[in-house]
Design a protein around this nucleic acid. Sequence first.
DNA 1: GATCCTTTATGATTTGGATCATATGCCTCT
DNA 2: AGAGGCATATGATCCAAATCATAAAGGATC
Lengths: 171, 171
Amino acid sequence: MQKGDVLFRQDQTTSGLYRVDSGCVTLQRTGLDGDTLTLHRAVSGGLFAEASVFSATYHCDAICSEAGSVIKIAKADIVATMQSNPTFSEGFTRLLAVQVQQYRAHIELLAIPSAKERILAAVQAGYLDSTVTELATRINLSHEACYRALRGLCDDEFMVRVGRGKYALPR
Amino acid sequence: MQKGDVLFRQDQTTSGLYRVDSGCVTLQRTGLDGDTLTLHRAVSGGLFAEASVFSATYHCDAICSEAGSVIKIAKADIVATMQSNPTFSEGFTRLLAVQVQQYRAHIELLAIPSAKERILAAVQAGYLDSTVTELATRINLSHEACYRALRGLCDDEFMVRVGRGKYALPR
DNA sequence: GATCCTTTATGATTTGGATCATATGCCTCT
DNA sequence: AGAGGCATATGATCCAAATCATAAAGGATC
């Protein structure tokens, strides 16, 4: 799986969910005007497209953002294992419950009006694990506003710049 | 259950999930600055706080927004039924999967930059089931901007005004 | 009926983020 | 080494939404 590879596209018939062995996959949707919105980032060990087990089509695009490998788990296998193995079933359900809460937290984050505060909250929530540009697509900001806010947060000493494009919370 | 009643508060220990028999309950969180954000609206027949089954504390406040009644379903009952009844288990899991997709769609809606387009998308998605003010808290707009955008959409004939505070899509 | 509160509604002003423009650093591919 | 592309970065300008202000309509309560 190379960077830029498409695992699946929105509206394609679902075949199953995926597990990331290495590298990174982002789930994104492309707006009518062509701009991309990042809905999820799955890194090593992470699953993605879990909800597809209960859906006929995928609801977003899955694009490889960092070369690596994934394994696909067929829908039928998941459904069968859920019926025969209550422990697995509970784990899978829990996974979705956690996602629901994460999305709620994300929606709360998106509701923060100030760019600086929103970015600070995002960084504290561990969102700054990729590029600044990518962060911007996750939190509804232009990348310019993102850079400026990071700059401002560093000036205010809420964050520190630790290299070109590298920012961190002060220890 | 009267309007304004608090079913539970954020950070309280979870006791179970709820089913709305009549009336309406909203799940909301209050920002640091005191403004409220509506995360979910449950009407007759709807469940809420499903994710609480896998969480020690509630992650938002549940407030009655329309008088009615609810029944509480204990966490232990859900867990037990899930283990003994695979059909129930699958249904519950499906419920959470649907929510995940709904939240993703909502996040996509929040990413629409133009207020008018965002509101139109929200109305088409059936969000205009309560007051305009309440709609505003769901889609990250001030209520003034919301009224103005609705007015604009009516002027452009993308919507029609059917009474004081009542707007609808043209048939 | 009088009072209070919420929702609806709109006008005026301000401001923060989008947009446009430009430039540099870095990585990859050839 | 050179070329192209993407991320980084910042400055200038513009505009749409936030904010502030005001007011009327409707509902609930006394």
